[in-house]
């Protein structure tokens, strides 16, 4: 069971993801609705893994990933992305993200990805 921080500006998405993670033995220790919050929450909660939406107000998920990776090089960040964002996802991987999951979320895919990233 891992402690997970969910970052997404849509409460709806956080809810869906949380249900998936929660019912697969992970503990969602916190949620953030934008990049700035995500950095703060990361510092505060030191989660095992972060699910990070890309398109968000204030600071987008890629900038937030860079910021977190800078202070915590071991951070495990999984990007949440929608179809049509190939370039952004790649950019996020270059920024240090360890994986990505695609909306609409499919529970087995999410679980697999998170398992792989946690295991690495």
């Amino acid at each position: 069971m891992a402690k997970i921080l969910i970052v997404d500006d849509a409460a709806f998405m956080r809810m869906m993801l949380k249900n998936i993670l929660g019912s697969n033995g992970h503990e969602v220790v916190g949620e953030a609705a934008d990049g700035v919050q995500s950095v703060e929450k990361y510092e505060q909660l030191k989660p095992d893994l972060v699910t990070m939406d890309i398109v968000m107000p204030q600071m987008d998920g890629i900038a937030a990933t860079r910021e977190i990776m800078q202070s915590y090089p071991d951070a495990k960040i999984v990007m949440c992305t929608a179809v049509g964002q190939q370039a952004k996802v790649l950019e996020a991987m270059k920024a240090g993200a360890k994986g990505y999951i695609i909306k609409p979320f499919q529970a087995p895919k999410v679980v697999e990805e998170i398992g792989k990233v946690l295991g690495s």
């Binding site: 500006d9 929608a82 909306k103």
Partner: peptide
């Protein structure tokens, strides 16, 4: 973008 993600879900 956000609406798209939600609608897809």
């Amino acid at each position: 973008h956000t609406i798209k993600g939600m609608a897809a879900s």
